[in-house]
Amino acid sequence: MLVQLDPGVIIWTAFTFLLLLFVLGKTAWKPILKALDTREESIRQSIERAEEAKNEAEKLLEENRRELARAEERAQQVIKEARELAEKMRNESVSKASQEANKVLEKAREEIERDKQQAITQLHGVVAELAVKAAGKILDETMDETRQKKLVESFLNSLQKN
């Protein structure tokens, strides 16, 4: 009695099941499965996009870092160059100034020397004249003027040599 097949029930079951399959297939499974697929696709795409964006950001960051390092390096270089330039300029200006000073000093010295020479020459003339006059007065015409002048001059020259 328990395990008795009833063909009527079998047919009803098959009919009910197939009808349910048909109706659900049309009205429920199609939209549900489609929605699931759509959602999964969108999730997949979102993850892909996020991954892409991450990669992009990482690349940008790396690039920025490299750029920064390069800029740093360049700045260092610029500073170094500037420092070198400044050093050079300072050295140059110092040496130039000292050169200039030397030159001025030299010139001054030369001028002094020249003036001295001039003064000495002038003094020679004056002294010689005075000496001759004085000697002439003393000797009183024992010698003619030219002879006396020659004498004094040789004397002065010997003085100068000493």
């Binding site: 063909p7 009527g8 029930v9 047919i11 009803w12 009910t16 659900l24 009205t27 429920a28």
Partner: peptide
């Protein structure tokens, strides 16, 4: 000869089918 008369289990089967349909319709 085929006895197609309704039985308890056929009625229950229909209730099951209707219930499944209602649930799945709600989900969709």
């Amino acid at each position: 000869s085929l006895d197609m008369s309704l039985t308890k289990h056929v009625v229950m089967l229909w209730l099951v089918a209707i219930l499944v349909f209602i649930v799945m319709k709600a989900v969709s």
